[in-house]
Design a protein around this nucleic acid. Structure first.
Length: 484
RNA sequence: GGCGGCAUAGCCAAGUGGUAAGGCAGAGGACUGCAAAUCCUUUAUUCGACGGUUCAAAUCCGUCUGCCGCCUCCA
């Protein structure tokens, strides 16, 4: 049974959808003003796993996200890059789409853009005014927080508390300092026509208008970073529920931040790593694995040192994947002993169950990765037995094991392609290397160690690793990224 | 100031009432002509401190200490 932690109630709750078998989820995307940083990627990877796991459980998921492509920052950045705001937004939206492809994050079913949903937003603002939840002053429209009874229910605050410690700049137009803008008046030429004059939407309204347009007045999951709980998501609830008169979202999920030396990584503070610069040092898969090695609600401290550890840890899993494939390509010996294949498979199935249970408990990827290591240990122990050999029985079981293994890894978005020696090289390289390996084997047979070692060293120099195993000599081309 | 969260081995990190997952590093071993790679085994009488509840607490309650987040743009 799937349980999810809901920020709204502060508890883990049984997950039940509005519509049987379908999950409607919306994840706050980003303002497309620059390249994404690791914090954005963590969020995207996290909800990607949520989505993959829901799909694994058999749900049909409608996964929606957004690009904020209208606001002051966009205009400012566009001027800096000598682009129009639309061009700038396009550039970074495309960069983000490239990034998520790199990280093996499934694209949303739809990315909604503010600039394409202005009509919807205006209609919503108009309705909020008509219903008495919002008011217009000098071309600006504000939402009146006092008019919405439940204001503060997500972030666990009340209006009195907040006003006491308010650090909000005084704005004479607002009836209450916590009122927030639904529509903002802007310089002629920059905005869109509206009943209140030229302007553009306030930040919060876009997510409400677009998510409800696509998913309906009430939907299942709304996700984003913890730093969006207040005011962004609080305001979304207020305006959405005021507008529709219905509950906006059933489950609010919030992921922890990525920190640098204990401090939140953020664009405004300038302490961030873009995903692009990190990708120069580590593979996307290592970064993904690292980010999933901690529970999504906890903050995670980012450091290259940690990524190195993650890389080593991930390699253990990858090695098993490779070894398993090699074992499955061995010749089957019908006379071979069975080697307790059933006991082994029972353990595998148990691990599979444990893995699913970990994710069913509020998407505990850290625990799931632990289970994956357990699984790897079982496989290694089995296939590395001294007198291991393959017969029909354990071949079938190992094939099924491989399937389970790959299926579980795929829920985490970790896919292991086999870079076998044959695939790594090309038509010319493979036979040449094989020839050298043959020569070295000859030399070894003759106990001509100098020549054997010379071949090994020279191959090493050009980036080909020679691996002697009990199954014979294997080789692979080392990735350049492993060199440092 | 208000609200919320966190503190588990050298490091990273699961675990929210039943007697401490997993990874990295370290140690031992297997394999090897040697080496590399790989694999196996192993590593916390104890969970920030002090009290309390309970047959039983890392888990619940209280106090304290330290760190962080939000309250302003933020994934």
């Amino acid at each position: 049974m799937l349980k999810v932690y809901n920020t709204l109630t502060g508890k883990k709750e049984k997950f039940e959808t509005e519509e049987a078998g379908k999950v409607k989820m919306y994840v706050c995307g980003l303002t497309v003003q620059n390249y994404s940083h690791i914090g954005h990627i963590r969020s995207a990877i996290n909800y990607d796993v949520v989505r993959r796991f829901l799909e694994y459980l058999g749900y049909q998921v409608d996964y929606i996200s957004n690009f904020t492509d209208i606001n002051e920052k966009i205009v400012k950045r566009a001027a800096e890059e000598d682009l129009t705001p639309a061009e700038l937004a396009d550039k970074y939206a495309n960069a983000f789409l490239e990034d998520i492809r790199e990280f093996n994050i499934k694209a949303a079913d739809k990315y909604l853009r503010v600039s394409e949903n202005i009509d919807q937003i205006i209609e919503m603002v108009k309705t909020l005014i008509d219903k008495g939840y919002a008011y217009e002053v000098n071309g600006n429209v504000y939402f009146s927080v006092e008019s919405f009874e439940d204001y503060g229910k997500l972030s666990g605050r009340n209006l009195d508390e907040m006003q006491a410690g308010a650090r909000i700049a005084v704005n004479e137009e607002k009836r209450n300092p916590l009122d927030f803008g639904l529509w903002k008046k802007v310089e002629p030429g920059d905005g869109w026509d509206s009943p209140w004059g030229e302007g553009w939407p306030g930040w919060h309204i876009e997510c409400s208008a677009m998510s409800m347009k696509r998913l309906g007045a009430t939907f299942d999951i709304h996700g984003g970073g913890v730093d969006l709980i207040f005011p962004h998501h609080e305001n979304e609830i207020a305006q959405s529920e005021a507008y529709s008169g219905q509950k906006f979202v059933n489950y609010w999920l919030h992921n922890g931040t990525v920190n640098l030396s204990g401090e939140k990584m953020s664009k405004s503070q300038g302490n961030f790593f873009t995903s692009r610069e990190v990708l120069k040092e580590f593979s996307a898969r290592v970064i993904r694995y690292f980010l999933l090695s901690r529970h999504y609600r906890s903050p995670i401290d980012f450091a290259y040192e940690k990524l190195e550890e993650a890389q080593t840890s991930l390699e253990r899993i990858e090695n098993t994947r490779k070894q398993l494939a090699k074992v499955l390509s061995l010749d089957i010996d019908s006379a071979a002993e069975n080697k307790e294949a059933e006991d082994f498979f029972e353990k595998i199935v148990k691990k599979q169950r444990a893995f699913v249970e970990a994710l069913e408990d509020d998407f505990n990827t850290a625990e799931a990765i632990g289970v994956l290591h357990d699984l790897v240990g079982e496989i290694n122990s089995y296939i590395n037995q001294k007198d291991f050999s393959l017969n029909e029985k354990n071949f079938a079981i190992l094939e099924e094991t491989e399937e389970i293994f790959l299926e579980l890894a795929e829920i985490l978005g970790l896919e292991f392609e086999l870079e076998s020696a044959a695939a790594a090289g090309n038509d010319l390289v493979d036979p040449l290397v094989n020839l050298l390996i043959d020569l070295r084997d000859k030399a070894r047979e003759n106990k001509n160690w100098e020549e054997a070692d010379l071949i090994r060293d020279r191959l090493q120099e050009i980036g080909i690793e020679v691996i002697d195993t009990s199954r014979g000599t294997e080789w692979e081309i080392k990735e350049a990224k492993d060199d440092n």
